[in-house]
Every structure is written in structure tokens, then in C-alpha cells.
């Protein structure tokens, strides 16, 4: 009986590992191939390269239109940093109001917020574009960043409401007795206690802003403002006929590094974010 269980477990392990390797094989292949000489990339499906070179990284890094990938990375990182600040401030404020404050119209606004969770963004697309264009914002980061300061990502508002509702009320009540106002409670008690949910918010804001392509395609017009995702697309071109596939794979590999680092250092926040809101993906 005992040996049978061990055998069964070993088979399950083997199966899970086998399927897992199969699943991430494309990603591993991309990373390995980025170190292969350009002419060997597609003739060689194996993951042990016959020759190793960093040539692809050097040529790819040069970018195009006189703008290097260094600029694209700085652009993406700056955009993500500002987006995180915006989402953390605006979504935690809205989350606190919905989770902890009583006010006229709360039920209505909460229902509205929940409805926007399911709303496809395309119905607001054209007017937003027209609006941002009249402000003269097209071509800048403002159309992408200003909405973050206005809590338009309802997912995070919902996440923070859920989290703040689960916090114990006692500390808050004690603070109120000690003369702390609502703003004080928010800054001194709610924010510190909600920090795990705020980390989740920051994490997914980073990933979504980093990976976002559609808004960058709409609003970024000149190469020196391009983000990594927008730049990669132009780098590959319409027909995908670029000769420098090695460079494209090398830059693609670099572009997924931040996601990897965040994922493996902050794994528990991922699970929390996904299970409380069913985050898309």
C-alpha cells in the first residue's frame, strides 16, 4: 500500500513536471535563442545553443529611429511609477469611502462602480480620444496617466474595498475615541493595515501598464516617447520581415524581466489579488 502511494505520487510529480516544461518551453526557447547567432535561431529547435553570442543584445539595444531601448525602458519605468502612485492614492481613497464611511448615495455609487468593472472600455474610447485631443494631450503620457489618478481601474477599488472591509474595527474605534478624524483614521490606521492590498494594487498596476499596448498605440506618437511594448511592435514591423529577429527576441527577453522579478519576489500578493477579484488574464 505504502509503495503504491509513493509510486502514484512520483507519477503525478512526473506528469506535472512534464506538462510544466512543455508549457514554458516557448519562453525558455525565446530566452535561449536570444543568445544564438541570428542565422541559427530557427534552424535549431533545441534549448542548448551550439554557439553563444551577445550580439543580438548589442544590435537590438540600438533600437530604431535613433532611439535606443534604454530610452524605451526609462519611458516604461517612469510611466509605471507614476501610474502606481496614481492608482494607490485614488483607489485607496475610493476604497476607504466605500468600505468604511457612511454617506448618502453609497449604495448607488457602489453599484455603479461594480457595473464599470464589467464595462468594455471600447464604449468610452472614441470620446476619450476626442477629449484628450482637445486638451492637446495626444502624444504625451497624460491620456494614460491622468485616468490612474481618477481611480478608473475599478478592479483595484473593488480589491481595496474587499480588503478594508475585512479589517478589524476596534483599532479604528479606539482612534476615533482618542479624537482622530476620518482623514486621520485613513492615513494612520487604514493605509498601514491595508498595505498588503496596496502592494497587490501596485504590482498589478505595474504589470498592466508595462504590458499595455492598446493605449500606447493610440496615444504615443513619436518614437522618443515610446514604451517598451510600443517600441517592440514597431521593431518587429507590420510584415514581421525584419532581418534582426535575434535582436527582437533579445529585446523581448529583456522586456519580460521586470515581470519575472516581481512575480518571484511577491508571489503571495499575486495569489491574493487573483483570488479576491478574479483578475483577468
Amino acid at each position: 500500500m505504502k509503495t503504491r502511494t509513493i509510486l502514484r505520487h512520483s507519477l503525478t510529480h512526473l506528469f506535472i513536471i512534464g506538462l510544466g516544461v512543455f508549457m514554458i518551453y516557448p519562453v525558455i526557447w525565446m530566452i535561449v535563442s536570444s543568445f544564438k547567432p541570428n542565422n541559427m535561431i530557427f534552424s535549431d529547435p533545441g534549448i542548448i545553443p551550439k554557439a553563444v553570442t551577445i550580439e543580438n543584445y548589442l544590435t537590438g539595444w540600438k533600437g530604431y529611429a535613433g532611439t535606443s531601448f534604454g530610452t524605451f525602458f526609462v519611458n516604461s519605468l517612469t510611466m509605471c511609477a507614476v501610474a502606481i502612485v496614481g492608482n494607490v492614492i485614488s483607489c485607496s481613497m475610493a476604497g476607504y469611502a466605500f468600505a468604511r464611511l457612511k454617506f448618502a448615495g453609497r449604495g448607488l455609487w457602489f453599484a455603479v462602480m461594480m457595473a464599470t468593472l464589467m464595462l468594455p472600455g471600447h464604449v468610452t474610447l472614441v470620446p476619450r480620444y476626442i477629449l484628450f485631443n482637445t486638451f492637446g494631450w495626444v502624444g504625451s503620457y497624460l491620456p494614460i496617466l491622468v485616468p490612474k489618478f481618477l481611480a478608473t481601474d475599478a478592479f483595484f477599488v473593488f480589491l481595496l474595498v474587499q480588503f478594508m472591509r475585512s479589517l478589524p474595527k476596534e483599532v479604528e474605534e479606539a482612534a476615533i475615541i482618542d479624537g482622530c478624524g476620518k482623514i486621520g483614521v485613513f492615513l494612520r490606521i487604514i493605509i498601514p493595515l491595508a498595505s498588503p492590498a496596496l502592494v497587490t494594487t501596485a504590482l498589478f498596476t505595474f504589470l498592466w501598464t508595462w504590458d499595455d499596448f492598446f493605449n500606447h498605440l493610440l496615444y504615443l506618437t513619436s518614437p522618443d516617447t515610446f514604451t517598451v511594448s510600443r517600441a517592440l511592435r514597431t521593431f518587429v514591423g507590420d510584415a514581421g520581415a525584419v532581418n534582426n529577429w535575434g535582436g527582437a527576441l533579445a529585446m523581448s527577453t529583456l522586456s519580460i524581466i521586470p515581470a519575472f522579478i516581481l512575480f518571484f519576489s511577491l508571489q503571495k500578493y499575486f495569489v491574493q489579488g487573483i483570488t479576491t477579484t478574479g483578475i483577468k488574464g
Binding site: 481613497m93 469611502a97 464611511l101 454617506f103 464595462l119 468610452t124 485616468p147 481618477l150
Partner: peptide
Amino acid sequence: NAVAYLFLAPWLLGFLVLTLYPMIYS
């Protein structure tokens, strides 16, 4: 309600200007 609406203001502004108005407009 003022304090609550103060906290809600960014979201409310975002909803009215960037969601509701564009929806009607489109």
C-alpha cells in the same frame, strides 16, 4: 457627507468625466 465625498472625489470625477460622459457622447 462632505468627508466621504472628499474621499470619493477622484473616483467620482473619473466616473463622470471619463466614463459616463464618454458613454453618452459615443
